[in-house]
Amino acid sequence: MAACDRLNRAAVRPPVVFRDLSRPIETGMPTYPGDPDVTLAPDATHEADGYATSELRTGTHAGTHVDAPRHTLPDGEALDDRAVGRFAFDARLVDLRALKPREAIGPDALPEPSDLDPGVDLLVLRTGWASHWGDDRYRDHPYLTAAAAERCRAAGVGVGLDTFGPDPTPAADSLEHPADEPDGTPAHDALLSDSLPIVENLRGLDGLPDRFRLYAFPLRLRDADGSPVRAVAEWED
């Protein structure tokens, strides 16, 4: 009877869906202004060596990646100071696709801390800017105000974004910053000072449920300020 009960429970369990939210790592991919270029090229080949290996050159913040507090805070912890379980998140999707280029995201655009379900530790902000990946307009993404970052900090939640990051990105030569745009990295600093996660350059956010699990495991780099990740969403269909 017990075996039958286990089989019946397994039969009615909803199927689990996985979706890759990561940018492919490839030569010439977009990088944050001033960051190292990415190259991925053959090193050994089957024809010449009997096996294949490749050489990868990249910065620690290329593509879809996580930031460590050390990224903007000199005394912040490095990625390898964190237990691996801290890169598995209970995420809530926040739809911000109505925002304009370089528009500030204020605290009122985010859930009140009291409205967050228990266990949520990451707000995934869907701005729609993933569709501009590969052109200069990707730099013109909306950004978090210091007050919005403080709301996240008060709620104990980090952020995932389909943009270069939570702070403004320098504009291309043909574009201008609004006069009231903040300098520096105030949103990064507010979040990272409490060791809250920041996951950047996500993709594939359309069609996600409001709640899901997000896995963003970094490479095990010694004393790293950030690392590319394979970001994967999981939910029950």
Rank of each mutant, 00 (worst) to 15 (best):
H177T: 06
L214H: 08
G128P: 01
A171M: 07
A147C: 01
L191H: 07
A187P: 02
G156F: 10
A155H: 10
T127L: 05
P197G: 05
D135T: 13
P111I: 04
I198E: 12
L161W: 03
S174G: 14
G184D: 10
E176D: 13
D173S: 13
W133L: 14
A187V: 01
A147E: 15
L205I: 05
A154M: 06
A179T: 11
T163S: 14
A147P: 00
E200T: 14
R211Q: 14
W133A: 11
F164E: 12
G134F: 13
L205V: 10
E150N: 04
D117P: 01
V120K: 10
D189P: 00
P166V: 06
D167K: 09
A155R: 11
A149K: 03
R203Q: 15
D206G: 11
N201R: 10
I198Y: 04
V159A: 03
F164H: 14
I198R: 03
S114F: 02
A148V: 07
L208I: 11
R151Q: 11
A172Y: 07
T185E: 14
D117N: 03
P113T: 09
A147S: 14
P142D: 05
R153Q: 15
Y143C: 05
H132E: 15
D194Q: 15
D115S: 15
S174M: 06
I198H: 06
E176L: 12
A172D: 14
P142N: 08
P186Y: 09
W129M: 12
D115P: 00
H188R: 01
A190G: 00
D136Y: 03
T127Q: 11
R211C: 05
E200I: 04
G165T: 03
R203A: 15
V199Q: 08
H177N: 07
D180T: 09
D173C: 02
P209V: 08
G184V: 06
R126I: 00
A147K: 03
Y138F: 15
N201A: 12
P186M: 12
P170V: 08
D140I: 04
G119A: 13
P182D: 12
P178N: 07
L202F: 09
G207S: 10
H188T: 01
W133H: 09
P170G: 02
C152F: 14
H132V: 03
P197Q: 04
P182G: 08
V157Y: 14
H132W: 12
Y143F: 15
L205S: 09
D115M: 02
A172I: 06
